[in-house]
């Protein structure tokens, strides 16, 4: 079943001068088509300014389209009546961990979403406990967010979204401000939610390594979707990726260079194990 469907989605940022005349138009999304099935793990890749964050904000109706149509969970995002239902079903995690935690106590922050949608008190307690457990943060429930690490804060933010019991989580560069440990913590938590709870995941990122875990990848450049496919098929096109200001995981790049140097290695190597196997077969 389709969870997200975008047809020719357009978003324009229009800048006006003091008299209200149009000064410039920046097309952040240019006829974007996107299809995500329920339970899929989709990554959207692109450099800064490629339009990927704008796309993310549309999925949560923080922005609405200048043209084209977007359906989330079968509901048209243009219809204001659908607003709260969509936001509840497609939760969103942002880049800066500090700027999305509202309360001064972890569990109270996780409760913020359910409180807003009018969940009853005993049910809130159950949800808070469940979602904190699902990201492995239950023992910090009474802590202040200020003394937690970046990775832990992001997991709190994920728990806050999970407590609204959404079908889908959209993560807008959730690891950009984290160190490698934090990055791993967050991605592991996300992958687990996808695999174990069947939550649809849309991961917006510019880290190629993070894309390897996804079922499908969309590559964006200049507001357009320029590539899509499985991680393997995307990573076999090293030159194309480079032309979109993206780079390829070190191992994939090494495999590519060795292939160019004449070794008969298959295209689209993603992991170290795959490269070791391929080289051993040749040796």
């Amino acid at each position: 079943m389709k969870f997200i469907e975008a047809r020719k989605l357009i978003h324009e940022y229009i800048r006006r001068d003091e008299e209200g005349n149009v000064e410039s138009i920046l097309t952040a999304l240019d006829q974007v088509d996107l299809d995500v099935k329920q339970g899929e793990f989709v990554a959207v890749l692109g450099h800064n300014g490629s339009g990927k964050s704008t796309l993310a904000k549309h999925l949560n109706v923080l922005l609405t389209a200048s043209g084209g149509t977007l359906w989330v969970d079968g509901k048209d995002t243009k219809d204001p009546d659908n607003l709260w239902a969509i936001r509840q079903n497609a939760g969103m995690v942002f880049q800066n961990p500090d700027n999305q935690i509202i309360a001064s106590v972890v569990e109270e922050d996780v409760a913020f979403g359910p409180e807003n949608i009018g969940v009853s008190t005993p049910e809130i307690w159950k949800r808070v406990e469940r979602s904190l457990k699902s990201v492995g943060m239950i023992k910090y429930r009474e802590h202040s967010p200020n003394r937690l690490s970046g990775g832990q804060k992001q997991r709190i933010a994920i728990a806050g979204v999970m407590a609204m019991e959404p079908k889908c989580i959209v993560l807008d560069e959730p690891t950009a401000m984290l160190d490698p440990n934090g990055r791993r913590e967050v991605l592991d938590a996300v992958e687990q939610l996808n695999k174990e709870k069947g939550i649809t995941v849309i991961l917006i990122t510019h880290y190629m390594e993070e894309v390897v875990r996804a079922d499908r990848v969309y590559v964006m450049d200049n507001g357009r979707v320029v590539m899509q496919g499985t991680p393997r098929s995307i990573f076999s096109q090293v030159d194309t990726l480079k032309s979109y200001r993206l780079d390829v995981p070190q191992i994939t790049l090494l495999a590519y260079e060795l292939r160019n140097a004449g070794l008969n290695i298959p295209e689209g190597i993603l992991t170290r194990q795959e490269l070791v196997e391929a080289l051993c077969r040749l040796y």
């Binding site: 490698p180 995981p249 070190q250 090494l254 170290r272 070791v276 051993c280």
Partner: peptide
């Protein structure tokens, strides 16, 4: 201590283990 060497360092290590 939770740090890692670059991926290629591991790769070379693995290759030697496999006899390359």
């Amino acid at each position: 201590v939770g740090l890692a060497a670059p991926q290629v360092t591991y790769l070379m290590h693995d290759l030697r283990k496999r006899g390359i």
